[in-house]
Write a protein that binds this DNA or RNA. Structure first.
Lengths: 137, 137
DNA sequence: ATAATTGCAAAACATTTGCGGGCAT
DNA sequence: ATGCCCGCAAATGTTTTGCAATTAT
């Protein structure tokens, strides 16, 4: 594995993600925000740094086919709800993930390193106005 | 919503998925298998039918960015483990999903219709030979 | 000085969509 | 006869990769 360097871009990506607490931004959203201070920042750079941070278990990458990944600044696994209509992603409080991880480790001979617990449904807004909402949050 | 018809392709897709019990095939894998009997079957047709079946809660679509979706012939949510190296996807027995769904419904004002509980790690094979495995299972 | 990292463009990849023709109802 | 569905090809949208230039060590 290559030796890691501390660059302005790498620091900025992590800082911006931590600042976005609970927002679960996509790579493109982070890039757009960061360009205010780093106008030449490339989207590929954001992706590369997020990948590295996720691999080091400093952040979490929340996957969903067809729509862009969203990123969570905390490494501890926890539950999320995703709106099937507008794509909004929120934390679900009060659900302890630790016992689930323990159960999974006991059940299979996998080396379990993480988990993703995601509920799917309609957010309050989309429940009421039953039309396609915007996907940017 | 359009009225649904029973075509040879639609029946074949569901049958093949049910026959693959526990295999969690991708759309491309299903298509390849089905072409033995339906040589002209298009991948888009497989995708369209899987989407329809998943939307009707007859099957489940298991999402993961960057790698193809895998499909599960049972509609009941249950836990899976995924190997980060070779992409293998297996069921995790002995984990009841019902109480999680109940907790999520109580915690948020979402209309929760489904869930995905996925553990990530290294499968037994990849744990031992620490090199990149194949992704076709 | 060295090699990791960047920005940009192009590639790769899974999935969706448009369309003319075919088939279930 | 109607219009849903198919196969094919092209488009879409996200993420990755190649490469020359830059920058941290």
């Amino acid at each position: 594995m290559a030796k890691t360097r501390s660059t302005r871009q790498r620091r900025a990506v992590l800082e911006e993600l931590l600042r976005a607490e609970g927002t679960h931004p996509t790579a493109a959203e982070l890039c757009r925000r960061l360009r205010r201070h780093l106008p030449r920042l490339g989207l590929a750079t954001v992706y590369r740094n997020l990948e590295r941070l996720a691999h080091a278990s400093i952040i979490q990458r929340l996957e969903w086919s067809g729509r862009p990944c969203r990123y969570d600044g905390t490494p501890e696994p926890h539950a999320h709800v995703r709106c099937l209509r507008c794509g909004r992603l929120e934390d679900v409080p009060g659900l302890d993930a630790a016992p689930l991880l323990r159960a999974a480790k006991a059940a299979k001979q996998y080396e379990v390193t993480g988990m993703q617990l995601e509920f799917l449904g309609l957010c309050p807004r989309c429940r009421h106005r039953r039309r396609r909402g915007r996907a940017d949050h």
